[in-house]
Design a protein around this nucleic acid. Structure first.
Lengths: 119, 119
DNA sequence: CAGCATCCTGTTGGATACTG
DNA sequence: CAGTATCCAACAGGATGCTG
């Protein structure tokens, strides 16, 4: 069906990276964890609007990808701390550049949206 | 349900920016357009794997958000050129920082994935 | 060529209830 | 507290066929 590779495949992982970033909760999790270790419940509160199912699922994926570390402590009650691995930390800078863009330019996007009839 | 705002809402547009970037095709389109104007068919081929439905839909959204400009030329046959607006251009740098990350680190992600049992 | 309309499937992801 | 299990709705998104 596809006779030749697309530009996005000119280097083997670009598409997969874009896929990774386009996961709904991953950027949010990395953003929060970039500010330090967090327990499961803290993550859920600070992210906001994420269901347990999705938070757990996404954390498992991030673990599998080597971006997040999970540590379990059996204090009186169970306690789990999540943090970025060194590899995970490397994603923070590109992400921050996006956050900065958001601060600088998203108002323009909003205005463009509003000025459009937008059926 | 949510009594207090999450950290992601500390500045009003961060979450919306993350949402925008987490759209499956937007990053791909911006990436290709960052290399210059493209016709509809060129976009489709260079991105690869995107259906007409989704390409059109996403382009319309990008237009509405003021990130992409659409120009129609009625030459012998219909021809449409898409290009980034100045606002759209501002997204290229954060995106490139992501591409660079992909080059530098995605191999590590891949290895982490493989070394995991991954039920 | 650059779409739009329709149909249809798979995945995403929330809600709820239960567990060690 | 930090999940797991189940169910279900909504939407993402592909395939196909048609149009100016």
């Amino acid at each position: 069906m596809e006779q030749f590779p697309s530009i996005l495949d000119t280097h083997p992982y670009l598409r997969q990276t874009l896929d990774l970033v386009s996961d709904k909760w991953i950027t949010a999790i990395i953003y929060v964890l970039s500010r330090g270790k967090r327990r499961y419940g803290e993550l859920q509160r600070e992210i906001g609007g994420v269901s347990q199912r999705m938070l757990t699922r996404t954390l498992r994926n991030l673990e599998k990808d080597g971006l997040v570390r999970r540590e379990e402590f059996t204090t009186p009650s169970l306690m789990v701390e999540y943090s970025l691995t060194p590899l995970g930390e490397t994603l923070v800078e590109p992400l921050q550049s996006l956050c900065q863009w958001s601060v600088d330019y998203f108002d323009e996007v909003r205005r463009a949206r509003e000025s459009n009839p937008s059926q």
